[in-house]
Amino acid sequence: MAEAAQISTNAPMTSSRRTYNRALARFVRHRLALFGLAAIVLLVLLCAVGPYLWPYNDLRIDIRHRFAEPFSGAHIFGADELGRDLLARLMTAGRVSLTVGFAAMAISTVIGTFIGTIAGYFGGIVGTALMRFVDAVLCFPSIFLLLALAAFVQPNLLAITLVIAATAWMEVARVVEAQIRSLRERDFAVAAQALGASDAHIMFRELLPNAIAPIVVASTLNVARAILLEAYVSYLGYGIQPPTPSWGNMLNNAQEYLSTAPWLALLPGLFITLAVTGFNFVGDGLRDALDPRLDLP
């Protein structure tokens, strides 16, 4: 009986407006999360709108201004070895990198949520088999798995996104599995069962909405991971292929000129850092803000 009471007080009553307000208040108090959110909003706006406003195109070659230094002329962030405008390239590359990040997050969240829900709800042999499969995939160092997979596919935006999603869904699956496994023992799940509800009804209508908070946290952190992974593979040459810029292949391109034109490496590196830390801070902030234990009366 004491156990039941304890479970009920731990209930994530996130449906309440009051709880959302409290969660919001906690998020706003989290300075780093706000900084992260600002960085993300800024980057997304810059990459989405910037190319329409900036007079230079990411592919236009301007040989007279090769290796133009930042803040020295018309090219604010300088130009690369072909005289292409660096800011224009960073913005276009940002579109690619952020698209890969968000798309891979969406795909991996859907896969992870689905597998985690099935495993957590059915348990037994099905659950064990699925979760041991998750463990097996987790055993591969993801960067090698990624490179191995990337070596087999034609590197384009879709393929890279799918490959990254394939190495990132396991975390979500584990989080969701643990949540669903505990939720399904709760009385409201038993009540749905007693009403004769189908498994799909119980899983997706009754249980999953109660697991939203940890899913949101895990998928936010996944965006950061996906951006970083895309940078890895593109840097190593298996990812987005030139001349299409991505933050990763810009770094790759820049390493030849590291001593003579260091800004070519520093600026893409800065953008990657900004995006990844931004998402990580937001993820941490959400984790703290949505923690139901903090809602105890």
Binding site: M1, A4, A5, I7, S8, T9, A11, P12, M13, T14, S15, S16, R186, D187, F188, V190, A191, A194, E206, P209, N210
Partner: peptide, 13 residues
């Protein structure tokens, strides 16, 4: 079925 704990038996969402 009617449950003992009215806090756990209703889906908070």
């Amino acid at each position: 079925l009617v449950f003992q704990d009215p806090f756990a038996s209703l889906n908070p969402r």
